[in-house]
């Protein structure tokens, strides 16, 4: 490896902290340094140093621009410094930046990396394909590997404000194409943190109507559990916010108890629950695949079982 530096970019500070921690670990193996690309004020540039960067490429404040407008600027930087890897936070924005960068640099991107490691002197990344049906390990065929990472892949380091490092100001390169921002509509802040939940009750499409969620939330309350869901309930039916769905394109959870109610158990969903300690399934179809991946299963109509369960849990209190 000619150049051993690892670079990090994420517009989300918490994700940036995790990526910097990951880059640090890997830099020990490559023997290179860690740099962060920061869009924002000077404080945020300094914050990146505290989070573990040796060097910050400071692109300046966003002002009326979109983060995506910085793509040519970042591409220029990568072209002149050629780091061995660029780690990007896997938000929607991050994926947009990564994709356009990949094309601009005549390479591509490995998205949603689950494991990141060096073997020999090659950086390898594994991620899920076929909706969680397979794990694929890949390496980049170009000098700089561009990869995106979601939350929870690396443990962030404790911020150390005493860390010193270089902050390099980088002039903005005007992009060829632009989108004008007409309006921002904030979404109600989400308070769910499924990844940290100790117990998760997860309804699926077996639920017939939105109102039936009341019964699920009542059950979750009695169990002191968070409510997760399968994807169709959050996208398509829109009964619950997107943050609540579990699986390959949603959250990966590791609770003590996962209770799937009317969930069939497709791989795309169940890859997200493999680290649960105890898995319970309630389904009226005894052939439902989730039973084969559960510790305990009740074969029956959820509309008969859930009320019984609520009654029984109330009686225990």
């Amino acid at each position: 490896m000619a150049v051993k530096d690892l670079w990090v970019f994420s517009e989300k500070t918490s994700l940036q902290a995790e990526l910097l921690a990951g880059a640090r670990t890997l830099a020990e193996a490559t023997g290179g340094g860690v740099a962060a690309i920061v869009v924002g004020d000077e404080t945020s540039a300094k914050a990146a140093l505290a989070q573990g960067a040796d060097k910050v490429f400071w692109l300046g404040e966003k002002a009326d621009k979109l983060v995506e407008d910085f793509v040519p600027t970042i591409a220029g930087l990568v072209q002149s410094h050629k780091p061995c890897a660029l780690l990007i936070g896997a938000s929607k924005r991050g994926k947009a930046v990564a994709g356009r960068l990949g094309a601009a640099l005549d390479t591509t991107v490995i998205t949603d990396v689950k494991k990141f490691f060096v073997e020999g002197d090659v950086i390898q990344a594994s991620h899920l394909i076929f909706g969680g049906g397979a794990v694929r390990v890949e390496k980049s065929a170009t000098e700089t590997m561009i990869a995106t990472f979601g939350l929870g892949i690396f443990e962030p380091l404790a911020a150390d404000p005493s860390r010193q490092g270089e902050i390099i100001q980088v002039p903005f390169i005007e992009p060829k194409t632009r989108w004008t921002l007409r309006e921002r509509k904030p979404k109600p802040p989400s308070t769910v943190n499924l990844a940290a939940a100790k117990k998760v009750v997860c309804p699926g499409r077996g639920l017939q109507k939105k109102e039936d969620l009341d019964m699920i939330f009542e059950l979750a309350g009695l169990l002191e559990a968070e409510v997760g869901a399968t994807r169709p309930l959050c996208e398509g039916l829109d009964w619950l916010p997107r943050e609540r769905y579990i699986g390959v394109s949603g959250a990966f959870i590791k609770p003590d108890l996962y209770l799937g109610i009317g969930v069939s158990g497709q791989a795309q969903h169940t890859v997200g629950i493999t680290e649960s300690r105890v898995v319970v399934a309630i389904n009226k179809d005894e052939e439902a695949p989730l039973f084969a991946q559960a510790d305990y299963g009740i074969v029956g109509d959820l509309y008969a079982i859930v009320p019984e369960l609520i009654k029984a849990l109330k009686a225990r209190k």
């Binding site: 794990v135 890949e138 559960a294 510790d295 074969v299």
Partner: peptide
């Protein structure tokens, strides 16, 4: 291509108790 695939594997299966209550 710009990606080299090193290997493809099915994810590890967790052993579960599979107790079915009917």
């Amino acid at each position: 291509k710009r990606i080299e695939v090193l290997n493809v594997r099915s994810p590890k299966q967790v052993d579960r108790k599979r107790i079915k209550i009917t």
